[in-house]
Write a protein that binds this DNA or RNA. Structure first.
Lengths: 401, 401
DNA sequence: GAACTTTTGATTGTCGACGACCAAAAGTAG
DNA sequence: CTACTTTTGGTCGTCGACAATCAAAAGTTC
């Protein structure tokens, strides 16, 4: 029954994280006996999860054979559902994007229409029709949504901006439709995970800030996603904002779409940026005006730049708090608004390095998302691959039960 | 070499967390074979780590024998070093305090004098002179300090308020002196751990706020202490404070002892409370005036109560941020200032329930430290016991290597 | 007291991981 | 070509975990 699933996962994990390895490398890294390593390698090779990868240069004798994880042994479908848009991708098992599609669709339409759109994307992505000999098979599907997720159950819980999604069993929906492993997570969590994996190994503590239409964050602590008791961790966007100038007398604090007032998002999110850039806009119009606002920012409009920089500083205040609390090694900034020019990032840096404590900032790196707009889909694929290749799931991938 | 250390630790862990168990319980919980369970139990019994604990009521046949972790199989010495005081304890292996001592001594004296004071405490605690037949042996020593700690190395790093401790190898010092396992951690981390273990099982996410002379916090995420990249996580005390009233024009933001201005601690910590309660006090005197200020608060002085309540609200603003970010299941409030009456706690509750998001607060519990002033020492003992009984360390506790 | 339950102790054979050993393969240095 | 290195593939005995079995011990119910 067990038959070394633990060891199989350990060996496979080695190849997934460290790339190609020789037998001797595996023995040194795992501490397993040579005979055991050979057994595991043979099993993984015959399952098609490993492949030969050339030979080492000789060090005086016979050259050592290298093996590598075969990312082409299967395919993953992922859907990164944002507040206002959708990005889907076909990935290999290593999390590389082979093909992708995007679409503008507000998540507020509700689960059925949005997941139907996802299905259409998946149908049009060039997934090889999964036959026994017809190319790599589909191994799993992963979906992220812009709100809290009860991770084990794969369902959305009390999402503030996802009308109609509360309690919807997303994982069940997907699993029924595609008959493979399904995974659901929060959108910023998966971005954080993607950036974490893309970064240098050994960095276990990462803070991801997403500044798109709204503002959210994801936390990697000790290499794992920090979800909190109800899966609601990382909600930095609805913290009360600290403003640089004292509010002018009589001015009311900004109303936020979460129903509260004075949230970070209500001053520094993408929609707040559009609202401030185009005064007099109706409330319903601000969200739709975000793309236009970003165009203006990209074109170098001075007023837009000033506003973006100010957003960055307001965000910086919140991030500085998170840095003091979590002491991450790196802060990654992503999302459409933050990735439009360097203005938001500059504002964030300005405040964080001034505000946070010396020990926490001494070697702190604040950088834009290395994966750009693909942080989410890549993070989804990485997390899904982790789930597939965990000791509990690895048995299914081997032949003969 | 290995000989089932993994399994031994697993079985022992079962008894440590769930109390007394029968053989059948262990088999059900671990999934190990009966023969294996018997082997492990025999080993642990002969090592004196388990003991017999009566029998079950019969369910129709022979009564099942119960076994329990024998907390008296060894002793632990722990020292909880705070900013202004020291609390040491002799504990059993279950973390129960058998004897304790306290002393007022400022940590700023430096490592040698303070650790010498710890040694004197240890010498006076009724530790049975550890002989082969002379009572339970000393198994480990643990120390906590009020500043960031590089946990693996067991040394203090860049502590803001611990002059002269930077880089001091506390664990090495202790290990050399007592020749047993030594563990060093941050004071609030160990309090968080103690409260976490004392609370109901299954609560993996806890936020600990300590309000004593200063202000600090400790984070339990997924059942483990969150330390951050440099061991500096949890520094809530030196976040910029959000004040309820707009600062009066011309008023300068409060100077903090960390060198910055406007920190939470500079408005809501114990020394700030003393400063505001006794205006005109010299800077050097405020810290020493804290006990007197707490006496006044305890006596029901109206002004003191108002100030304490205000401190609570300022702390609440910071805690609300942490709650949104971390989504803990419970917030525990400890420290001398917070434990003097309910005033500070009331202020915190007032703000957190108003400020934080519905999902995060729906089932959030905010409670005072269940272990009172002993959170620290008990947390130290618990953590030390965990380290001793981990798979890597369990071999040393068994006879015959 | 007899029949039935349940726990416990002891034995045995199977299987997988390990480590030691040997021999073949592949290459380098002279 | 020869001697030496290094990797690889295989065999084999040992040991620990497991599962199955049997028998004794302890207790309940009738």
């Amino acid at each position: 029954m067990d038959s070394g699933a633990e060891g199989l996962a350990q060996v496979l994990g080695l190849f997934r994280t460290r790339g190609s390895q020789t037998r001797a490398d595996v023995i040194a890294a795992t501490g397993m006996a040579r005979s055991t390593v050979n057994q595991r390698l043979e099993a993984l090779l015959s399952a098609g999860l490993l492949c030969s990868a050339g030979e080492n240069a000789s060090t005086g004798g016979r050259r050592a054979e290298r093996f590598a994880f075969d990312a082409d042994a299967g395919r993953l479908l992922v859907a990164d559902i944002g507040a206002s848009g959708l990005r889907t991708a076909l990935c290999d098992l290593g999390g590389r994007v082979l093909a992708e599609r995007t679409e503008e669709i507000p998540v507020t339409r509700g689960p059925e229409p949005v997941l139907k759109a996802v299905d259409e994307h998946f149908a049009r992505l060039p997934l090889p029709r999964t036959g026994p000999g017809g190319g790599p098979a589909l191994r799993g599907v992963a979906v992220s949504v812009p709100g809290p997720v009860e991770f084990e159950a794969g369902r959305a819980v009390s999402p503030p901006i996802m009308l109609g999604w509360d309690g919807f069993d997303i994982a069940g929906h997907v699993r029924r439709r595609y008959g493979v492993t399904a995974l659901v997570d929060n959108d910023v969590n998966v971005m954080a995970f993607g950036e974490h994996r893309a970064g240098p190994p050994g960095v276990g503590h990462l803070f991801m800030l997403k500044v798109g239409t709204g503002v959210g964050s994801g936390i990697i602590a000790d290499g794992r996603i920090l979800r909190g008791a109800q899966g609601a961790a990382g909600d930095i966007g609805h913290l009360p904002a600290r403003l640089e100038e004292p509010p002018s007398p009589g001015a009311e604090p900004a109303l936020c779409r979460c129903g509260n007032v004075g949230c970070v998002e209500a001053y520094a999110g993408g929609w707040a940026f559009a609202r401030d850039l185009f005064p007099g806009l109706a409330d319903e119009e601000t969200v739709n005006a975000v793309p236009e606002a970003l165009r203006l920012l990209r074109s170098g409009d001075h007023h837009a730049i000033r506003l973006a920089r100010r957003s960055g500083r307001i965000l910086g205040e919140a991030v500085a708090g998170a840095v003091s609390l979590l002491n991450p090694a790196v802060v990654v900034v992503g999302g459409q608004f933050a990735l439009t020019g360097e203005h938001v990032l500059t504002g964030i840096r300005e405040v964080v390095y001034r505000r946070s404590l010396p020990l926490a900032t001494r070697s702190l790196v604040i950088r834009p998302a290395a994966l750009g707009k693909r942080s989410g889909v890549i993070g989804l694929a990485q997390q899904l691959a982790d789930a597939l290749f965990a000791p509990s799931g690895i048995a299914e991938l081997l032949p003969r039960g």
